[in-house]
Amino acid sequence: MIPYGRHSISEADIDAVVEVLRSGWITQGPATPRFESLVSSYCGADYGVAVSSGTAALHLACLALGLGPGDALWTSPNSFVASANCALYCGASVDFVDIDPHTYNMSVTALRTKLEQARSQGTLPKIVVPVHFAGQPCDMKEIAGLADEYGFHVIEDACHALGATYEDQQVGNCRYSDITVFSFHPVKMITTGEGGVLLTNNKDLHERAGRLHNHGIVREGLSEEGGWFYEQHELGFNYRITDIQGVLGISQLSRLNEYLSQRRELAARYNRLLEDLPLERPYQEAGRQSSWHLYVVQVPENSGWTRQSLYEELRNEGVGVNVHYIPVHTQPYYQRLGFQYGQFPLAEAYYGRALTLPLYPGLSEMQQDHVVASLEKFVGSDESTRGRRIE
């Protein structure tokens, strides 16, 4: 089975991990702070805190910004559930902003309309979390402008977007946000097994996130006591990563640009090979460069086959297609919170036709050809939708 995504582990990665295992620094050693520094430097941010997952990074970001009971967080329904769950972990409420039908990211137009309504009702959010879906950056400059106007904080959920660029600058520089978070899950741009990082240009946010990811404990500035001394200043969590993960991240980061180049070449090749098939290929906004975490096509409406049938046929052919994402507000847990089908129709319409094709470093041209040949076998070419692409 050709998976939709997979990690790439080299002998250099293995050697780096083995070296740490032999060093005596298995948990909290020099590798993790070095990894934090390297990721921050790559993205152009001042500070970084490496944590146990992208979900942990989202939770810490919310806590660092003071999200709590009585507050609200808004995010995109087209995301993994963690983008919304982080608000509930803090005792806050969550709501969603429908997506742009071109990029599948949060719609700035929908956000502006929702903010106008919320201001009149006294229900403005404390935090908005735009999600860089599939690796394509959101309209961050416009979102930052709305943040200034309406007084909310911005957390960029860039878990798909390490290496993506916006206005010729790396995503993660926090120019238009308070905090950016990344994930290092095995199918992401680089992996630490499980892991994530929180980036910011704000020293206070960095220091608070640093405390919170380590039980709320402070050791610095307590010189009047012995070196063994520490104080817990607030209720924190064990969201640390180990030096084993940190050194794997360092080794992986050294090949990030190579991985990105491979992903972009494969995406460009898909665009060419799929041109004559009745599928909508991913739209890319001008002035942005995707990291191509995912390559998502849309199946046409009113055809002789459905997304479900195509999914099943392709998997029978050994093509491990997937679907990203089931809209968060349609999940049973969120339905019990009062969300309903039909509230975010563009996200629901997108989901009904979305299909993620295999894309990862190491996917061979022969494997990619098999993916395309399998698509051709089942969808053929339909003159009415040939080469259709959202513009």
Rank of each mutant, 00 (worst) to 15 (best):
C62W: 12
E36H: 00
A64C: 07
G66N: 02
S52E: 13
A57N: 05
G54A: 13
L67T: 01
A31M: 05
G54N: 09
S40E: 08
E36R: 04
V51K: 12
R34P: 08
L60K: 13
Q28D: 03
D46L: 14
D46Y: 15
T55Q: 15
S52Q: 11
T55K: 11
P30T: 02
L60T: 09
V49D: 12
A45L: 09
A50T: 09
L67P: 02
V49E: 15
L67K: 01
G70T: 05
Y42I: 06
A64Y: 00
G54M: 11
V51W: 12
A50I: 06
T32A: 01
V51I: 08
A45D: 08
C43Q: 12
L58F: 08
D46S: 14
Y47L: 15
P33A: 02
H59L: 12
G29H: 01
C62D: 10
S37F: 07
V49Q: 15
S53G: 05
A56W: 15
C43M: 11
G70P: 02
A61Q: 06
S40D: 10
G29L: 01
P69V: 09
V51N: 15
P69T: 07
H59E: 12
G54L: 12
L60D: 10
G44F: 04
G29Q: 02
A31L: 03
Y47N: 12
H59Y: 14
A45Q: 10
G68P: 04
S53C: 07
V49H: 13
A64I: 06
G70L: 04
S41L: 11
S37D: 09
R34Q: 10
C62N: 12
E36M: 01
S52C: 14
A64P: 03
R34M: 06
Q28M: 00
A64V: 04
T55P: 11
S53N: 09
F35G: 03
G29W: 00
A61H: 06
L67N: 02
G48N: 10
P33W: 02
P30C: 00
A61R: 14
D46F: 13
L58D: 06
A64T: 05
G48K: 11
L38F: 06
T32K: 00
Y47S: 14
C62E: 09
V49P: 15
G44R: 08
D46A: 13
P30V: 01
Y42H: 10
L38V: 07
Q28V: 04
G70D: 03
T32C: 03
P69L: 07
V39Y: 12
V39A: 05
G44H: 09
A57C: 06
V49W: 12
Y47F: 11
A61P: 05
G70Q: 02
S41Q: 15
V49F: 14
Q28A: 01
G48Y: 10
A50P: 05
L60M: 09
L65G: 00
P33Q: 00
S52Y: 12
G68Q: 00
A31W: 04
G70M: 03
Y47D: 09
S41N: 14
P33Y: 04
A64D: 03
C43T: 14
L60H: 10
G48V: 05
S53W: 08
A31Q: 02
L60Q: 13
A45S: 13
G29D: 01
G54Q: 13
C43H: 10
A57D: 03
G66L: 01
